[in-house]
């Protein structure tokens, strides 16, 4: 499908192709619920460029999906509200654009893959219908042409017997195949940025690897930017270029993937790494992080991680919240005591 010569996707006024693909700056999201205001995202900033993969990593509930939904503009409002920050696509702040402009960015420029393909695909329509719908509604194709393209897409994501399977319903596919359909759907309109929200969490380990390598391959071929969201440190190592570690709605560490594994700069990252089962340490006690993630309606003062932190000092328990200290170009940590954590002197 890379042979599409004319770019038929609608263009967005003010777009500068030289600007970074996506910049998120000081994004803040809160959920106003009966139990109180949950501050789900508290000033998150990052940048993704074409052809690179940024992994966002953190425990479940730390705000990864909410970040993705905010970028896509599909946050449930109410209860969720974006209360600050910018989301710039090619220099254009999407939050300032009309609903209609934002709608056309979805799937055309920025597409998303959801965690659980079984519930993310509509159970009452065939996968062919759901794929063709994109071509019909965004490219004005006929049903027949849409279906042809749907078959091509299923081929692209290596679903065997695509021509027959195109008229099957989602529940007739296996978990892995369903996630391939999801991927096909996200790639349909040749987006520049792909957000994959835990694309392999619902799958068996063997299938996980296949899906990840398919994603990586497609991303490389098309030179897309990709945001890979996961809570599994093991998944990202081979695929990601850079990693942002997220905790309680903030980014606590940013680093290229190699540095994270070699020398974590935040106690939370360190704890995450220690909790991965490793073949070479078989038989040893696995270190799990003690305690639970904070209640987002009552985030502790100071560093949100302090109640669970091994390196905690009094300074961690009071505001100001530790800023992201730049350690070296490309590496930063939101820990006052990053030196100690890294073991630097």
């Amino acid at each position: 499908m890379s042979d599409v010569s004319v770019d038929m996707s609608p263009s967005l006024a003010g777009v500068k192709m030289t600007a970074p693909l996506l910049e998120v700056e000081e994004l803040k999201v809160e959920f106003r619920t009966r139990a109180g205001i949950a501050k789900a995202i508290n000033g998150v900033s990052f940048e993704v460029n074409s052809g690179e993969t940024l992994a966002i990593l953190g425990e479940s509930g730390c705000g990864k999906s909410v970040t993705a939904q905010a970028i896509m503009g599909i946050l449930d409002t109410p209860p969720g509200y974006i209360t600050g920050g910018q989301i710039r696509y090619r220099g254009v702040d999407l939050l300032k654009r009309t609903d209609e402009e934002r709608r056309l960015v979805r799937a055309n420029k920025i597409a998303m893959i959801f965690q659980d393909a079984l519930s993310a695909l509509n159970p009452v329509f065939t996968v062919g219908f759901q794929l063709a719908e994109l071509f019909r509604k965004h490219r004005g194709m006929s049903r027949a042409d849409g279906k042809k393209r749907a078959v091509e897409l299923l081929d692209l994501v290596k679903i065997p017997a695509a021509r027959q399977r195109v008229s099957d319903f989602p529940h007739q596919f296996s978990g892995g195949m369903r996630q391939r359909v999801m991927i096909a759907m996200s790639l349909a309109l040749d987006p520049e940025l792909l957000i994959a929200d835990e694309p392999t969490t619902a799958l068996d380990v063997t299938v996980q690897a296949q899906i990840m390598s398919l994603l990586a391959e497609l991303q490389r071929e098309r030179q897309m930017g990709m945001i890979l969201i996961t809570h599994d440190m093991g998944v990202v190592a081979d695929v990601a270029d850079r990693i942002n570690i997220m905790y309680a709605g903030r980014i606590v560490e940013k680093a290229p993937v190699y540095d994270i594994y070699a020398k974590p700069s935040h106690p939370y990252t360190k704890a995450l790494l220690e909790s991965i089962p490793r073949v070479d340490l078989k038989g040893q006690q696995l270190n799990v992080i003690r305690g639970l993630p904070p209640n987002l309606t009552r985030i502790p003062a100071g560093c949100a991680f302090n109640p669970r932190c091994r390196y905690v000092r009094d300074a961690c328990k009071v505001d100001p919240i530790p800023p992201l200290y730049e350690i070296k170009p490309g590496i930063s940590s939101a820990c006052h005591f990053w030196k100690e954590v890294r073991g630097d002197d």
Partner: peptide, 16 residues
């Protein structure tokens, strides 16, 4: 699948 990292240990009495 639950997160491997939050499998709480019981040394935190607040967590059931």
């Amino acid at each position: 699948m639950s997160d491997p990292v939050t499998t709480a240990t019981s040394d935190n009495p607040a967590v059931i």
